[in-house]
Structure formats: C-alpha cells, structure tokens
Simulated assay, not measured.
Amino acid sequence: MTKVSHSPKLSLIQRALAAYYRAGGIQHPDPHMFGHYVIEAKVADGVTTFYAYARLADASGTLAVFRINRWDELKRLKRWPKSIDDGSAMTVGQFNEWHRKTMKDIAETREARTDEADLEALIDELDEAA
C-alpha cells in the first residue's frame, strides 16, 4: 500500500498521480475523469463518519483510488466503495453544499429551541406574577 504524506505545494490529485506512477502505474489517467468524493461510511453512537477519496480514471474505468485522511495523507486502496464507480458517491462540492445546509438547519433549530425556552420562561414568570 502506498502512503503519501502531505506536501502543501501539491494538490491531492497531483500527489495521487505521483503515488500512482511511483507504484508502477503505466496507464495515463484522464484529467477530465479525476474526482474527489465523500462517502458516508457508518453511523455509530449517533456519530456519522465520512471518508474522502481521490479517484484516478481513464475511459476504461477507475485506475486507482486513494483514501484521504484528516492530515491530507493519501493511502491507495486495493478495494474501494462501489459508489465511487457507479456514480452514487457525493463529490466534495455536493458534500460541502449538503454540510452548509445541514449546519444552517441545526443553527435554526437551536435558535427555535432557545426561543421556545425563552417563551416558556416568560410564561412561567407571568404565571408566578399572577
């Protein structure tokens, strides 16, 4: 398994390409088929874990997939999630959009709960005053 450490001067795809060729890759990936994907992997104890992947492909299909860890290190996978090949995986852009919407919804829910709590406290104060 090839592990590539973080280099701030190179993009994830450039580092994935370097690792691919260093490991003996001979086919040339198509730059139009590169992809960054985010996949919801598991939910345990109420915590959802997401994994990020970089995919190198050509017209014949996927050539290599690398998992991206939280330190932006790449690890080449021998097997990868089917959703990367079948197109059902979220791209990083789709994930970011989903994440922004989810965070906004959470903030609005918290604000609504705070408003409800303030209203309940006001009702309690009015009941005590009466």
Score class of each variant (00 low, 15 high):
residue 42 K to D: 15
residue 102 T to G: 12
residue 110 R to G: 09
residue 88 S to L: 03
residue 101 K to V: 09
residue 99 H to M: 06
residue 82 K to F: 04
residue 122 L to K: 14
residue 8 P to F: 10
residue 53 Y to L: 07
residue 3 K to Q: 06
residue 55 R to C: 09
residue 9 K to A: 14
residue 11 S to T: 02
residue 128 E to L: 01
residue 87 G to D: 09
residue 16 A to E: 02
residue 94 Q to H: 07
residue 112 A to N: 11
residue 84 I to K: 01
residue 52 A to L: 09
residue 11 S to G: 01
residue 1 M to C: 07
residue 75 K to H: 08
residue 28 H to K: 14
residue 39 I to Q: 04
residue 68 I to R: 00
residue 22 R to A: 12
residue 121 A to E: 05
residue 97 E to L: 11
residue 120 E to V: 07
residue 89 A to C: 05
residue 122 L to W: 10
residue 91 T to D: 02
residue 69 N to S: 07
residue 69 N to Y: 02
residue 45 D to M: 09
residue 27 Q to H: 13
residue 2 T to M: 12
residue 87 G to R: 03
residue 91 T to W: 02
residue 54 A to E: 06
residue 46 G to I: 00
residue 30 D to N: 03
residue 29 P to H: 00
residue 75 K to T: 14
residue 82 K to D: 10
residue 53 Y to N: 05
residue 7 S to Q: 12
residue 86 D to Q: 09
residue 43 V to I: 15
residue 92 V to C: 10
residue 9 K to L: 13
residue 38 V to W: 00
residue 119 L to P: 08
residue 67 R to Y: 11
residue 111 E to V: 06
residue 21 Y to S: 07
residue 67 R to Q: 15
residue 82 K to Y: 08
residue 53 Y to H: 02
residue 14 Q to I: 03
residue 88 S to F: 08
residue 120 E to K: 04
residue 49 T to H: 14
residue 88 S to Q: 02
residue 5 S to H: 12
residue 3 K to Y: 07
residue 15 R to W: 01
residue 93 G to A: 09
residue 94 Q to K: 12
residue 20 Y to A: 01
residue 6 H to K: 10
residue 15 R to C: 02
residue 127 D to L: 12
residue 6 H to F: 15
residue 92 V to M: 09
residue 51 Y to E: 15
residue 32 H to C: 13
residue 34 F to M: 11
residue 126 L to C: 13
residue 83 S to N: 05
residue 45 D to Q: 15
residue 8 P to S: 10
residue 50 F to R: 14
residue 93 G to I: 03
residue 100 R to P: 01
residue 32 H to S: 15
residue 100 R to W: 05
residue 112 A to I: 08
residue 65 V to P: 03
residue 113 R to K: 14
residue 126 L to S: 11
residue 13 I to Q: 01
residue 102 T to E: 13
residue 110 R to F: 10
residue 121 A to H: 00
residue 24 G to M: 02
residue 104 K to S: 11
residue 42 K to W: 12
residue 23 A to Y: 07
residue 71 W to E: 15
residue 70 R to N: 14
residue 80 W to E: 05
residue 18 A to D: 09
residue 39 I to F: 01
residue 69 N to P: 11
residue 13 I to W: 00
residue 62 T to G: 11
residue 90 M to L: 05
residue 14 Q to L: 03
residue 91 T to G: 05
residue 34 F to R: 04
residue 15 R to D: 03
residue 90 M to Q: 07
residue 120 E to Y: 07
residue 76 R to P: 04
residue 74 L to H: 01
residue 122 L to E: 15
residue 3 K to M: 05
residue 64 A to V: 02
residue 31 P to R: 01
residue 12 L to C: 00
residue 122 L to N: 14
residue 53 Y to W: 06
residue 127 D to R: 10
residue 100 R to D: 05
residue 125 E to P: 03
